[in-house]
């Protein structure tokens, strides 16, 4: 069991709801993986459209907590206003805070992120900041009131996996008691397992599942990888060593030459 802001989740997999080939495929991915959280967003709605209501009904029927995001926001003002609109719309004070610093890389703007996090935490939000592996930035976010960090694996939608293993390992070691979610950049389940083996608490992904040939099967694969990786972390893996070391006893070896 894993908990964020005092809420127990049934799975360490947080799954996005975008880019699926159909609503049915989205639903199947959640059912088959048992994902513990669904991420959602807000976008413009035309009168009489009804798209938003239909989507919301689908998500409610999944029966999992929702984590609204501020995706696409480039300024503190945009992110804060979007967060307030999301809190009313989705009835949750959880917010995945994204303040995009660059349109091509989608890299977080560290300065805007800290400022927005401070405003939202003071307003009673439970902020999940999408950040980098930068430990100084992480410290500032914690000082701003965040109790969870969401460092990126790699830039959003790239599928490159854990781009900076050293940086992520350092971040994990620097704040051993802070719940951390690897958010974005994963492409295949082995990368999620690796994140778990390193001691991260959960993984948030979307594109790797939604763009797979069989999203439901890939979602299950990620869920199993997360379980395996977490189990391995709890089992305390051996330390790697440079030199070979026989696993079969040398003592008692017959002399046959």
């Amino acid at each position: 069991m894993v908990a964020f802001y005092g809420t127990d989740l049934c799975s360490r997999l947080m799954l996005g709801t975008s880019q699926y080939p159909s609503p049915k495929a989205l639903e199947a991915a959640f059912v088959r993986s048992g994902a513990g959280v669904a991420t959602v967003s807000l976008r413009r709605e035309a009168a009489g459209d009804g798209t938003g209501q239909g989507f919301w009904q689908l998500i409610r029927d999944l029966g999992v907590p929702v984590l609204p995001n501020t995706a696409g926001c480039h300024s503190v003002k945009e992110a804060v206003t979007t967060a307030h609109m999301a809190r009313e719309m989705f009835g949750t004070d959880w917010i995945k805070l994204e303040v995009v610093g660059h349109a091509d890389t989608l890299q977080p703007d560290p300065f805007g992120l800290v400022e927005a996090a401070g405003i939202l935490c003071a307003d009673g939000f439970k902020v999940f900041p999408y950040t980098t592996e930068d430990g100084i930035l992480a410290g500032r976010l914690l000082e701003a009131g965040c109790e969870v960090l969401m460092p990126w694996g790699a830039p959003i939608g790239t599928g490159l996996g854990l781009n900076n293993i050293y940086g992520l390992r350092t971040l994990r070691a620097q704040f051993p008691d802070v719940p951390m979610v690897i958010d974005a950049g994963l492409g295949v389940p082995s990368q999620a397992a690796q994140a778990m083996e390193m001691g991260f608490d959960a993984v948030l992904l979307n594109t790797a599942v939604a763009k797979a040939g069989d999203p439901a099967k890939m979602a299950e694969a990620f869920a199993r990888a997360l379980e395996a990786g977490r189990l391995a972390y709890e089992a305390d893996p051996m330390e790697p060593r440079d030199m070979a070391h026989p696993s079969t006893p040398v003592l008692g070896l017959a002399v046959l030459s």
């Binding site: 967003s41 938003g52 919301w56």
Partner: peptide, 10 residues
């Protein structure tokens, strides 16, 4: 005036 509704998100 901005009028927003629930949508898919990652």
């Amino acid at each position: 005036l901005e009028i927003l509704a629930p949508r898919q998100g990652g």
